[in-house]
């Protein structure tokens, strides 16, 4: 802190007596100022997170009660209501996406990490997976619309789930591959040395050892999928009703989701809907953050 005092020439001329204090070179001063600038920019960059969390807790927390989890979204000028069907819809669609993406992703990762890590197929697939991670989420929606909605002729939960699976798959593949590569080679060599087949080595050594890290990747993918809106806009659409119809699941009909509910309600001129949008955001962020934190606890490296 004392450095700043001696920055200007005027400051040093004030102390007429030859001081014992070392003259601060311009370049040290520059270094000091840049350090201050970095601190400031790091703190400025952190403000949005706290602002978002503050708004969610104050505005969303105020509206949060048991009712919002059990009731259907309100129309126009209605008071009360909730987003029970949207919460359920989000779970159903993320579940469908996980059922598609996790098995395929882990199988692919096994090939990339263990069976043919340097093969041409693996290199091309790795590049494809990296390209898919950068795919704008809206295009996953367009793709699912073309593949599923146009084929089945209806907006539905599986269409939404498929769009989310396209986004989850590359994350699962790349993180699971990294996880399996971390398994020490000596452990695998020991298993091979005993005459194990590839399958036995993978099932009994690689997968159990890499499981915590694989789960981290899976959970990150789930968290991302839960928060996605754009792919659901025109694949699952939205619905003001429960996904159950007369006691059975009506999968092949438009399905509500938390994210689309927030989007729809954010632009409405009614206070009630707006409050619900904040409450739904709080619930959505809580889900995403909990999944993130749990994955971090799981994924502590063992080696």
């Amino acid at each position: 802190m004392s450095v700043a005092k001696f920055s200007g020439s005027s400051a040093s001329s004030l102390s007429a007596a030859p001081s014992l204090q070392r003259k601060i070179e311009g370049r040290s001063l520059r270094s000091f100022l840049l350090t201050c600038l970095t601190w400031v920019s790091a703190i400025v960059a952190s403000i949005p997170l706290f602002s978002v969390l503050y708004m969610l807790i104050t505005r969303g927390g105020a509206r949060l009660n048991l009712e919002v989890f059990t009731e259907l979204p309100p129309a126009g000028f209605e008071t009360g209501g909730g987003f029970g069907n949207a919460l359920l819809g989000t779970f159903v669609m993320v579940g469908i996406a996980a059922l598609i993406a996790i098995p395929v992703g882990i199988m692919a990762a096994i090939f990339l990490a263990e069976l043919g890590p340097v093969s041409k197929l693996a290199n091309v697939a790795r590049f494809a997976a990296k390209t898919l991670t950068g795919l704008p989420s809206i295009l996953a929606g367009v793709f699912a619309y073309a593949m599923v909605v146009l084929t089945t002729g209806t907006y539905s939960a599986p269409a939404g789930g498929f769009a989310l699976a396209v986004l989850m798959l590359p994350i699962v593949v790349l993180t699971a591959e990294e996880a399996m590569k971390m398994v020490p080679k000596i452990m695998k060599d020991a298993a091979y040395g005993m005459g194990s087949t590839d399958t036995q080595v993978i099932w009994k050594v690689v997968l159990p050892t890499a499981m915590p890290a694989i789960l981290t990747g899976v959970m990150l993918a789930v968290a991302r999928a839960a928060g996605e809106t754009a792919p659901l806009l025109f694949t699952a659409l939205f619905s003001n009703y429960w996904i159950f119809e007369d006691g059975h699941l009506a999968l092949m009909s438009p399905t509500a989701s938390l994210a689309v509910l927030i989007y729809n309600f954010s632009g409405m001129p009614f206070d009630n809907q707006l409050e619900l949008a904040w409450a739904a955001s709080l619930v959505l962020v809580l889900i995403v953050l909990i999944v993130n934190i749990v994955s971090r606890i799981f994924g502590k490296p063992r080696f």
Binding site: A45, S51, V52, G227, S266, S281, L284
Partner: peptide, 19 residues
């Protein structure tokens, strides 16, 4: 920084409109 990445974009949108 990691939490900033975790917040869904629709929530950022809502926050953007009202903050």
């Amino acid at each position: 920084v990691e939490l900033l990445a975790a917040i869904p974009s629709v929530v950022y949108g809502l926050w953007g409109i009202y903050v």
